[in-house]
Write a protein that binds this DNA or RNA. Structure first.
Lengths: 334, 334
DNA sequence: GTGAAAGCGCTAACAA
DNA sequence: TTGTTAGCGCTTTCAC
């Protein structure tokens, strides 16, 4: 299991000390060219590869960053993870990924697992986190940034957007279009502060306009359940809504698909708005009206900030990104 | 940077030797219950977590598995990665993820990066790989399994499906439905042996029926490009096809969206079949006819086999999973 | 069942 | 510029 040729064998073979071999590996400029050559020859003679684990052990750095998302199997997260990944790799880091399954307890366990794998830093969704996480990370001096929710009062750096604003924009759009029968479908707000904020923003828009929501529901991210919820809403005893305000694009897809299956025409019979502007949103038919979140930029920036932190570089603490209404064909005036 | 509370502090605090603490950690059954309790108390008193890097260093195992996919930002891969992730975590392993960006050279670099991170094993897509990869993994004694393509002659264990069969089934369905004007859109076959196999399967089905394909195109996974290709095909000077056979579901979505946008009715004017049966396929309207690949089971099994290998357990070398036509509403007889 | 002690392969002072 | 040396935190014989 263990490697046969260590730094000492190379040293002996090259007639130098192990320290010189180590230097040849890490700071070759400190070694006389002639010596360096001899060492390198010895290395290839002996087919030597430095043991990364010993290295990580002694330097205390694994050049690895951990991240935890509810699930990777969802464009809402995979777009961001992908961007984070690219940023990290371009800086010589790698991504150790974990799923929380929307569960704070699991998230905590995953943080432990990640920390115990020796990650140098962590990127978390900007949701509520278990208190213990802060302690653990503090104790291990592991920098952490959170993404998705801008919060100047956050303990960790937050790279995100104003989720209340997101909700307000979406709901206001529907109101301005003249809708009175507006239903709302949100992600489960239980352990998700972003969903809470969005719902709150939607409520603000309503009360500012003196309106009220016709019906409000919460769903998880399974299209199956989203569709069923949409069906119940449309078939409801109070009659169907003329518009539905969804707290994210995935939910909007579900509503869209179900509405069309039920024979409704979107946007003629039903207007639908999402939040997020996932890649798919401009391709589905009709194109989904939504509020754009620059997900990829968010995560890429989060990666950069984390690496700044890891290198003890000066960096910003909180970053807010702009969001923006994207009107397509799934909404129309009443 | 370095942890404050080590195994020695715990030992002192519990009034035992560090060896006992180590045993309490690794083989608690060898420690007297009373002693064990004292040690565990000491651990939580001192808020002790074993340093995984030291552990990995001394045991030679990082309890980490690496995987490389073209991009995570695509349901075709994220479904599998997610399943792999779950399997790994349930066995005490974690996933170190990398993207190849559809590039064999990058893949090789990522393998290096992963190996140098000390991964215990690797899961690769069953595509062509650089020869050097085998050497590198062999040298470091790092087990590797490939997923997606069943190939009893493969050097590494292969966990996958018969991609030719997939192509045959898809094309045959269209032929049996009576279509003569069939277009084909495939993923770029350049560095993708599965796409090659599927295209070949489609060709086999055609020649077996004495038919020929009306037009064949290749596209990457960007919906933008897929839609453009679909548009060209439909607007082509030879007149539109009555059916299009897509080498994966993502491509089928693109064709579906574009066809509907162009005012065609699916399946009345155009039949569309995909391959893969992604989650979304049963939700889009109309529901997508496709050939089911048990992606999650594939990747989960790959994870299990890899772990068997890591534990020096007996295990199978190659596993073929069944595939199956799933008829929904995007295809009809001419 | 428990403790003492010897490393694992490498890095990083410090000395020369 | 190069060598000597002392660990990093843990696991693991081997005695007791």
């Amino acid at each position: 299991m263990r490697r046969s040729n260590g730094i000492r064998e190379v040293a002996k073979h090259a007639g130098v000390s192990s320290a010189s071999v180590s230097r040849a590996l890490n700071r070759p400029e400190l070694v006389r060219p002639e010596t360096l050559r001899r060492i390198r020859d010895a290395m290839s003679d002996l087919n030597f590869y430095p043991d990364a684990m010993a290295r990580a052990f002694v330097t205390g750095s694994s050049k690895t960053v951990g991240s935890i998302v509810p699930t990777i199997d969802n464009s809402m997260f995979s777009e961001g993870i992908n961007a984070l990944q690219d940023t990290l790799v371009s800086r010589g880091y790698m991504l150790l990924l974990a799923n929380s399954g929307y569960n704070l307890e699991t998230e905590k366990e995953m943080v432990r697992a990640l920390v115990s794998r020796g990650v140098d830093g962590l990127v978390l969704r900007g949701e509520k986190h278990d208190r213990e996480i802060e302690d653990l990370l503090g104790k291990h001096r592991i920098p952490c940034v959170t993404v998705g929710r801008y919060d100047p009062a956050g303990g960790f750096p937050t790279i995100g957007v104003d989720n209340r604003k997101l909700g307000r924009i979406a709901m206001s759009h529907l109101i301005e279009l003249g809708h009175h029968r507006i239903a709302q479908i949100s992600a489960v707000t239980d352990q998700n502060d972003r969903a809470v904020d969005r719902v709150q923003g939607m409520a603000e828009a309503c009360s500012a306009a003196g309106r009220s929501i016709m019906a409000a529901r919460q769903v998880d991210y399974a299209l199956e359940n989203i569709r069923q919820t949409a069906r119940e809403l449309i078939d409801g005893s109070d009659g169907p809504p003329t518009a539905v305000c969804c707290s994210n694009d995935i939910i909007a897809y579900g509503v869209l698909f179900e509405a069309v299956r039920m024979g409704l025409s979107v946007p003629r019979d039903l207007s639908i708005i999402g939040i997020g502007n996932l890649d798919l949103s401009r391709h589905v038919v009709p194109g989904l009206t939504t509020v754009m979140i620059p997900t990829r930029r968010l995560w890429a920036r989060a990666g950069e900030i984390l690496i700044d932190l890891l290198c003890d570089r000066e960096t910003v603490k909180h970053v807010e990104f702009d969001v923006e209404l994207v009107v397509r064909d799934s909404t129309k005036s009443i």
